[in-house]
Amino acid sequence: MRTYIIKRLLNALLTLFLITLLTFFFLALAKDPARMMAGPEASEEDLMGIRRELGLDRPVHLQYLMWLGRVVQGDFGRSYVGKTAAINMVAERLPATLWLTVTAMGIALVLSIPLGMIAAVRRGSLVDALVSALGVSGQAMPLFWFGIMLIIVFGVNLRLFPVSGYGTPAHLVLPAVTLGVYTMPVIMRLTRSSFLDVLSQDYIRTAKAKGVPRHLVLFKHALRNAALPIVLMVGMQLGVLVGGAVVTETVFSWPGIGRLAVDSVVTGDFPVVQATVMLLAAAIMLMNLVADIVVAFIDPRIHFH
């Protein structure tokens, strides 16, 4: 057990190191940051000055080490366009994205786990067919189209919720539902199949045969055992969720990291892109690490895989 956790942690560190490599080299070498920083009127001399200042005239591996040294201290450099520390720009927007993604994940879980359970228990019934149709269509629907439809139906026609913006719980409803529905199908499918797995296990049959009430069998025994793969899946869905948040935030003018990242990529504001990508990747990796370790504690049969 302990060796597994140590191994997993070491692997996480290595992964993090690779993430820094990719983030740095892909961006820093792709375009000339000095040109991006300087105004359109800058002369070649100005550019040389900026390059010297940033250390861009040194060999690449040294640049990377310098960059890494600063990143470890939480310094991603200054935003070319925002003229403030990139890390601060990301931090300011973190709460909005957290609200959105956590609520969306909540909605996805609340909808998909019961639906997946029903589908599994009533396998082959009309309900099962409906649930799987829902799952398939959920996956086949472009997220932004769904979001705009929600705006038109619930914002413009029914006037139930504000169309866009940030601040009150009412503002959260449409974006969170959009993102939740986007995340739902995969979790729903998994719930259904893990439940089918569990329900066919001997101990469930035994429990049923012993006359344990049906809801107890379902909620106490089956759910507990089906929960492991679901926990792992939720961890793995985080990247998808954050990707979806990028689109959702734009549709609903939601002031989160996703919009910042898109704006920064397009304007070539690389310190902010690096900060966003690094932090998101590190966060998602950490969550997966935690999920792995939690599952390993609950179910020690799982090895390092």
Binding site: I148, I151, I152, G155, V156, R159, P162, V163, S164, G165, T250, V251, F252, S253, R259
Partner: peptide, 18 residues
Amino acid sequence: IRIIPEEVTRVAELMTGG
């Protein structure tokens, strides 16, 4: 001043008084 990047969202906001 509200920052609304999507045109359809801007128009929807105008229609609903946002």
